Amino acid sequence: MVAPSWPAGAVAVPELALRSRERVNSWKLPSSQAKRDRRATVFGQDPVALLRAV
């Protein structure tokens, strides 16, 4: 099976791979609220970008 190439145009695939390789329940939240908010924003942008590409 060959992976489609279109996701690379929708999201930054290397960064997405780094973010999604660990289980969510193994994460430790950043100490500051600003850093937690930034993480939530970044993780929310990935699926939105993929859905828009479809």
Rank of each mutant, 00 (worst) to 15 (best):
A3C: 10
L29G: 04
L16R: 01
A10Q: 05
W6L: 08
V48P: 12
R52N: 11
A10H: 00
K28Y: 01
R19Y: 04
S26R: 12
N25I: 14
M1I: 09
V48A: 14
P30W: 07
V13T: 02
N25Y: 15
W6T: 04
R52L: 13
S26L: 12
R23W: 10
V24Y: 15
V48K: 15
L51Q: 03
M1S: 10
V13K: 02
G9D: 03
R52F: 13
V2M: 04
L16I: 02
V54N: 12
S26F: 13
A53R: 00
L16W: 01
A17S: 06
S26V: 10
V42G: 07
D46N: 02
M1L: 13
V54K: 15
L16A: 01
P47H: 00
L16N: 05
K28W: 06
R19F: 02
A34S: 04
V48Q: 15
A12E: 14
E15N: 01
V48G: 13
R23Q: 10
G9E: 03
R23I: 05
P7L: 05
V42E: 13
K28Q: 11
E22I: 06
P7S: 06
L18I: 08
D37R: 10
A53N: 01
V42M: 12
V13Q: 02
P47N: 00
G9I: 05
A10D: 00
V24M: 14
Q33S: 15
S32T: 15
S26T: 14
S32R: 10
K35I: 05
P30I: 07
L29S: 03
V54G: 15
